[in-house]
Design a protein around this nucleic acid. Structure first.
Length: 480
RNA sequence: GGCGGCAUAGCCAAGUGGCUAAGGCACGGGUUUGCAAAACCCGCAUCCCCGGUUCGAAUCCGGGUGCCGCCUCCA
């Protein structure tokens, strides 16, 4: 089946064909590095990763670029507002730490989180602060072509009326937008719809010199300038969260299309927001989770990844801790099977597996691929994986069948990234005391003193250690 | 007010005109185990309501109800 995605621009499912055969160029709206990434942010970045992995697996030469928004759209006032809840920003203000340091610090957290969730690294992560020159060039081009105008001492605005297509992406029309526009404080704009390309505001923490005065770039211009620099004016896929559709991406299109020739992004893929316990994430309701929060609760990166990618990306996903807990078990079963097959299939050859198994696994793989090709239907694909895993788990497999089964799991996991992903938790060993308890229990079992044995097992459980008596010895696992 | 989306079992979630409506979690029963844990097996829904189109609809159309997102810097 051909690849197809829902293209926000056409508001319909479209067959995906890259502009240049065999090559995909993709731009992802990345993080704003002024706080720890939360699960919603990561869901959007994982959508980008899923696309990346599908493109890779289908044999495209993929170039992926994700921007780092480190320009402070943060004024001195904002810092003051945020001071109550953000330690680092408070510190920054109190101790006069450079905002760049804060940005770098959060950028690091972002990359750590990305790795822990098993996202493949993009090919470029351009920082907005390092591309101000490109932005200025683009703004100058827009002014020259009559698509932007300068207001002395205020900044530069994009003239929305000069771009009749404005609204196409978000499904708005200029008339509707005009009618619904909120009252503008600054009437020096020609139209309330016009948006800033360059702003002059002394309170802003980051400032650059420009032909329009010392100030800072508008939010949208960074993506237009950086995508063009790294991917060219026309590229294949642009992703982001649904809230980016308007105004951010609408404005990006306007800027890019008006500043030069050629198409801009051909496919726009947007992730719906996630809810927590059925409602918008909220700090006051205690339903605001960063990736680090979940890691601190002892969840593995691949467990979080599984939860975030399993519902369809265009479906408003409902995140719950109970759901994550449940998914952890589902992943654990797949991982246990994967580990088992790696042992049993070590010496086998998939091609020599029985015809029955070969057919079954080929069919499963074809079905899995078809699901992913069809607008990234991960849930459907997971269904196939679980079904097949169940069959593999019950079957008496020879080495060849095990190897074939393993090959299937590895194929699926090239997209899913959860079955063979490494643990992100630091596995603590047993303390001497715990070790003693474990050995004492072993001795009690040896003596068939079951009461004493169970007592010791409970004692270990109270310390978060789960005991498993297997055929070939006792193993333990730390749990929360 | 404008634009858009969603309603499938206790919970999460696929399915977009046609075999017995995927899968996961939970739950019940069982195999195994000293007992557990883990693993494995078995069971578990007619798809928000009303009307229509059709030989046939969870899937298409109309109406209703409920929930949600966006509307200038929140993925």
């Amino acid at each position: 089946m051909a690849l197809r995605f829902y293209n926000t621009l056409s508001h319909s499912l479209e067959e995906f064909t890259p502009g240049q055969a065999g090559e995909v160029r993709m731009y992802n709206c990345g993080p704003t590095v002024y706080s720890d990434p939360h699960i919603g942010n990561m869901r959007s970045f994982l959508l980008a990763d899923l696309l990346r992995r599908v493109f890779d697996q289908r044999g495209f030469r993929t170039t992926q670029v994700m921007n780092i928004t480190d320009v402070g759209h943060l004024t001195v006032d904002d810092v003051a507002d945020a001071a109550g809840e953000d330690k680092l920003e408070k510190m920054a203000r109190a101790e006069g730490i450079d905002p760049y340091e804060i940005a770098r610090r959060y950028e690091e957290v972002f990359f750590e989180n990305l790795d822990i969730l098993g996202a493949r690294r993009a090919h470029e992560y351009p920082r907005a602060t390092e591309h101000v020159a490109e932005m200025i060039t683009m703004i100058e081009a827009l002014i020259e072509k009559g698509h932007a105008y300068q207001v002395d001492g205020v900044g530069v605005y994009f003239r929305v009326r000069s771009f009749p297509e404005y609204g196409r992406l978000s499904g708005n029309t200029l008339e509707d937008l005009d009618a619904g526009a909120r009252i503008e404080v600054d009437d020096r704009k020609e139209s309330p719809l016009d948006f800033a390309l360059w702003k002059i505001d002394e309170k802003h923490l980051m400032q650059w010199d420009s032909p329009f005065g010392r100030g800072f770039p508008g939010w949208h211009i960074e993506c237009s300038a950086m995508s063009e620099k790294y991917l060219g004016r026309t590229f294949d896929v642009h992703t982001g969260g649904e809230d980016n559709i308007f105004p951010h991406h609408e404005c990006e299109r306007a800027q890019s299309l008006c500043s030069g020739d050629g198409e801009f992004a051909r496919f726009w893929v947007h992730a719906r927001h996630l809810l927590v316990d059925g409602a918008k994430m909220s700090k006051s309701k205690g339903s605001f989770f960063t990736i680090n929060d979940l890691l601190a609760r002892g969840f593995e990166g691949y467990e979080i990844r599984y939860t975030l990618i399993s519902p369809h990306y265009r479906q408003p996903m409902n995140f719950t801790l109970d759901g994550l807990e449940g998914d952890r078990k589902a992943v654990a079963r797949l991982r246990a099977l994967g580990e088992r097959l790696r042992g049993e299939g070590a010496s086998g050859a998939p091609a020599s597996a029985s015809a029955e198994w070969r057919e079954r696994l080929e069919a499963a793989q074809a079905q899995f691929d078809a699901c992913l090709d069809d607008d990234l239907n991960v849930s459907g694909g997971l269904g196939v994986v679980h079904e097949t895993a169940k069959a593999l788990g019950r079957g008496e497999l020879g080495p060849d069948e095990a190897a074939a089964g393993l090959a299937f799991l590895e194929h699926a996991d090239a997209i899913l990234g959860v079955i063979f992903a490494e643990s992100s938790q630091v596995e603590e060993g047993l303390s001497p005391e715990e070790q003693e308890l474990l050995e004492a229990r072993g001795a009690a079992r040896e003596a068939r003193d079951w009461a004493r044995s169970d007592e010791l097992r409970d004692a270990l459980l109270a310390r978060g250690i789960v005991i498993k008596d297997g055929a070939d010895g006792v193993t333990w696992e730390r749990r929360r």
